[in-house]
Amino acid sequence: MAMTSDAALEAAPVEKARGYWATVARRISRDKVSMACAAILILIVLAAIFAPWLGLADPYQGSMIRRLRPIGTPNYPLGTDELGRDMLSRLVYGGRLSLLIGILPVILAFGIGTSLGLLAGYLGGKVNTIIMRTIDVFYAFPSVLLAIAISGVLGAGIVNSIVSLTVVFVPQITRVAESVTTSVRSLDFVDAARASGASALTIMRVHMLGNVLGPIFVYATGLISVSMILAAGLSFLGLGTRPPEPEWGLMLNTLRTAIYVNPGVAALPGVMIFAVSICFNMLSDGLRSAMDIRN
């Protein structure tokens, strides 16, 4: 009897109180779907980063005599494209630009939108009116139209495509950041910080940021999927990456004419966009439910 209670006492402190993020991490690591998606994404990202060391064929080296070989051709496991370049190599290398132009706009918009939303939400009054009414104007454009209009006007190119997508996502993130900030601003601990003499900047940086970042982050991760589709879409239209760069959207565009000759190969770049986009979506859903501690 005494033994067991001693053992129980000894065991008790091991169950240390976890922090919020530790709990979230533990919950999401138990979610099989999220973990599978994370594994696929990590694999694609690593393959893209280490592409030059994987012993793949040169993604730029074409050959007129072996164009549009089907999937499963010896030496060309995923066939060749319309210029006879190795598809496997181009798909792996394609991840570099595709992921960059898909993810970077969300990261940039996350930084800008969070700052703007924090300012608008915390300072309120005129600052809030100016920022939020400007944001409203961008909401008057459907996001695809806005992205294409800005890219179309700026001209084709990777930088322009990143800029236009950032402009599309900043208003959306700002709106979320503003509403989260407004709801946190009136909580007691912010009043306490203010009463203790902390400056507005200190309050925003030290007390608010940690509390608003979570929900904004989850929202932003959900945007990556849209951003991947739109970024590749801009390249597909000829407004993003330029040939001969390997990039999934552009590859889909140049292979469009090949659907009558070799449909399997022509559809491959889209499979990559789809896979990355759906994995980010599922991961974002998983993160959202892991952060919802009430469940």
Partner: peptide, 21 residues
């Protein structure tokens, strides 16, 4: 989830491959 994650321009191509080609 598949509906909101699919690059629809690619889905269009796939449908063309199946139903037209």
């Amino acid at each position: 989830v598949a509906g909101v994650s699919v690059p629809h321009y690619w889905l269009g191509m796939v449908l063309v491959i199946i139903f037209s080609v």
